[in-house]
């Protein structure tokens, strides 16, 4: 019997540089269900390089509804470095009923110190949205040589009075000491890596995230076993608390 899981880090659509197993939504949903994933927060790979933000979010919302109703929660894309992003934010919440937005600063050319990013965090906080920040999408050593990006530095968040609102870091490699954010385990690595993350961030702040289908789903699932955390809050309860849902 698989452990019941809430996966905070999956992606729909197509990775720009290769086809991935399960990069079709029905296939992705079937795989998640077979592994015990009850809910999943889904962003779109289109968010990395496409410029029609509303087009991305509309397709994402429709895809989640068509193939993953009750299971997939769409995480809308926003880019505060392009004009009129506040309208995209409004539509995420008011048109598409999204409760989560997902940012990709290193693909959109801004940092978390930029005034536009700070303004976005403040606006999202006012709207009580969860903001997910994808710290990296691929190891710098294996990126396409023509499209290279450095990992996002989350440190500026920790200097903000409220940590920038309700914020989750995705795909962060090392332990995060700021205790105001949530962090997923997709890129947590090394022997005892989860334990180090728990010590740094605190038990309640570490949540399950697979980065499926870019990563094999089994990677994050096996980390629960390796770290002895199958019965802990990582699998499900911490994510529900982050989403402000009943456990």
């Amino acid at each position: 019997m698989p452990v019941p899981v809430v996966d905070t880090n999956v992606y729909l659509s197509r990775w720009p540089f290769r086809r991935l197993p399960c990069d079709d939504t029905p296939g992705l949903v079937a795989k998640l269900k077979s592994a015990g994933v009850q809910r999943a927060i889904a962003g779109s790979f289109d968010a990395l390089l496409h410029r029609d933000i509303e087009g991305i979010n509309r397709r994402l919302a429709e895809e989640c509804k068509a193939h993953g109703a009750g299971m997939l929660m769409p995480a809308g894309c926003l880019n505060p470095a392009i004009p009129d992003w506040k309208e995209d934010l409004r539509r995420c919440q008011e048109t598409h009923a999204m409760r989560v937005i997902r940012l990709h600063p290193n693909y959109h050319g801004y940092t978390l110190e930029d005034s536009s990013a700070l303004e976005l965090l403040a606006e999202a906080s006012k709207r009580k949205l969860l903001v997910q920040i994808a710290c990296e999408m691929e190891d710098e050593r294996t990126q396409h040589p023509m499209v290279r990006t450095a990992a996002v530095n989350p440190a500026p968040l920790f200097a903000l009075p409220n940590g920038g609102g309700r914020v989750q870091l995705l795909n962060h490699r090392g332990p995060v000491k700021g205790k105001s954010v949530w962090i997923d385990i997709a890129m947590t690595e090394g022997v005892h890596g989860i334990q180090r993350q728990l010590q740094a961030a605190g038990d309640g702040r570490v949540v399950f995230g697979s980065y499926f289908p870019f990563f094999y789903l089994e990677s994050a699932l096996l980390k629960l076993t390796e770290s002895g955390q199958t019965e802990s809050g990582i699998a499900r309860a911490n994510a529900l608390r982050m989403l402000e849902e009943p456990r």
Binding site: E189, G193, F215, A220, L222, K223
Partner: peptide, 18 residues
């Protein structure tokens, strides 16, 4: 390549492969 990696992430390359 543990301990720089976890066993989990690397076992997944085979357990999870189609």
């Amino acid at each position: 390549d543990t301990g720089g990696r976890s066993f989990s992430s690397q076992l997944a390359k085979v357990h999870g492969a189609r």
